[in-house]
Computed example of a mutant assay.
Amino acid sequence: MISERDRRALAKIEEHLAATDPELVRMFREGPRRRSRLGLPGALIALGVVLAVFGSIISTLAVALLGVAFIVVALYIAALRAGVWRRPRLA
């Protein structure tokens, strides 16, 4: 168990941190942010692969091309989210 003196010292440290770095305090209160790395692009790639393979199996060019289009759109979204390309800002 922690002594009263140590408890007061920790409280002073906490007050100092709250006054000097509120962003750090906010991060500790909220906890880590969990973001899915795959999300929408991952789902689109999976759907695109399924459509491309299915279209190839049943020999339907339109379905296969639709699958490829899904994959291309997913890669574009993933690149935008990663900051590879920046969207132009309209003034």
Rank of each mutant, 00 (worst) to 15 (best):
M1K: 07
M1P: 03
I2V: 14
I2G: 05
I2T: 14
I2Q: 09
S3W: 01
S3A: 04
E4M: 07
E4R: 04
E4G: 03
E4A: 10
E4L: 05
R5G: 12
D6T: 13
D6H: 12
R8Q: 15
R8K: 14
L10V: 14
K12Y: 06
I13F: 03
I13C: 08
E14H: 12
E15D: 10
E15V: 04
H16V: 13
H16P: 00
L17V: 15
L17K: 02
A18M: 08
A19S: 12
A19I: 02
A19C: 03
D21W: 05
D21E: 04
D21P: 00
D21R: 01
P22M: 11
E23K: 10
E23T: 07
E23N: 11
E23L: 08
E23V: 08
L24T: 11
L24S: 11
L24Q: 09
V25K: 06
V25W: 06
V25C: 03
V25T: 06
R26F: 00
M27E: 15
F28Q: 14
R29M: 13
R29C: 14
R29L: 10
E30L: 07
G31W: 00
P32S: 06
R35M: 10
S36G: 12
S36Q: 11
R37A: 11
R37N: 05
L38E: 06
G39A: 06
G39K: 00
G39D: 06
L40V: 13
L40M: 15
L40G: 08
P41W: 01
A43V: 12
L44Q: 08
L44W: 01
L44K: 03
I45A: 12
A46M: 10
L47C: 04
L47T: 07
G48R: 00
V49C: 01
V49M: 08
V49S: 05
V49T: 10
V50L: 15
V50S: 12
V50R: 04
V50A: 15
A52V: 06
A52S: 11
A52K: 05
A52Y: 01
V53D: 06
F54D: 12
F54T: 15
G55K: 02
G55I: 03
G55S: 04
S56D: 14
S56Q: 14
I57A: 04
I57K: 05
I58H: 10
S59F: 07
S59D: 12
S59H: 15
S59M: 11
L61E: 09
L61C: 05
A62C: 02
A62R: 12
V63S: 01
L65V: 15
L65E: 07
L66K: 10
G67R: 00
G67D: 03
G67N: 02
F70K: 00
F70E: 03
F70T: 02
I71H: 01
I71A: 04
V72M: 13
V72H: 07
V72G: 13
V73P: 01
V73I: 15
V73L: 09
V73G: 05
L75D: 09
A78V: 00
A78N: 08
A78W: 02
A79M: 10
L80W: 01
A82K: 07
V84H: 07
V84R: 07
W85A: 02
W85F: 15
R86T: 13
R87S: 10
R89L: 07
L90H: 04
L90R: 09
L90T: 13
